[in-house]
Amino acid sequence: MFSMDLLLGAVVLGVLLGCFYAAVSVGLSISFGLLDVPHVAHPAFLVLASYGVYQLNETYDIDPLLAGLAITPLFFLFGLLAYRVYYETFEKRGTDAGVRGIAFFFGIAFIIEVLIILQFGVDQRSVTATYIGKAWRFGEYRIPIRQLVAFAVALALTILLAVYLSKTFMGRAIRAVAQDEEALRLMGANPVRIKQFAFGIATAVLGIAGALLIIVAPVEPTLDRAYIGRTFCVVVMAGLGSISGTLIAAIILGVAESIVLTLFGASWAPAISFAMLLVVLAVRPQGLFGR
């Protein structure tokens, strides 16, 4: 039954999980939150990255985190390409971009899912590393080290990205393009180039995030569907484009999921992020930290 200890354990695990959710959502916070691209395929790219990491880990026995780092340039290119196509076909022409833009990314998500199935099958896949499978014990608590690794890397990644966006020249340009494209154009910068670069960054981050995803638990091709709820829940709850908000919103989601899992069991867990997303959209669509 319910006990304080159980609850405390759930909260601790929830915070760890939440930081991990921040890392998988932070790219969407840029692509959707800042750039306003209806990037429903974000979670599909995430799962694709996990399979990339799996492949490298399986064939060359590379540490999953290094493998994740290794595929970031490739994902950066994917991002550039995806934005270019989106821009040329939808944003530039303007007409009816809504419906078709959404359908476009929905289609891409499905193509990625099926390609993964055709290549790897529907079975779960996982990676091996020295820190996977061990756990840390404090008294009666048991925290898997894979969770701690994911937590630490995720936190570092999110903070790094927040710093990048607020302190560097390019980061500020990205924020500026989200707020006032025209002003940037008048300053002589090319907003499309900046957005494309930002989309590249948002996708590149998925290399690492995908590594974390497969470190935390085995992956399967349709895992992206659950992450549509989680990533959009985090980004919308955070208030579009707020990176620090992303971290806090992700922790709220992580803790909520962890508590529900402890109290009601695993069969209710997938609905939590979607339910929170619905509530936020219905009650406070500008997010917790939005204007």
Binding site: V40, G98, I102, I228, V236, F274, L278, P285
Partner: peptide, 22 residues
């Protein structure tokens, strides 16, 4: 959900589906 625009509506409909399925 119909006060939501564009992608928000779409995502909300996925959410409804998952919740009912659960």
């Amino acid at each position: 959900t119909l006060r939501m625009r564009g992608i928000f509506f779409s995502i909300a409909t996925i959410a409804v589906a998952i919740i009912i399925e659960t």
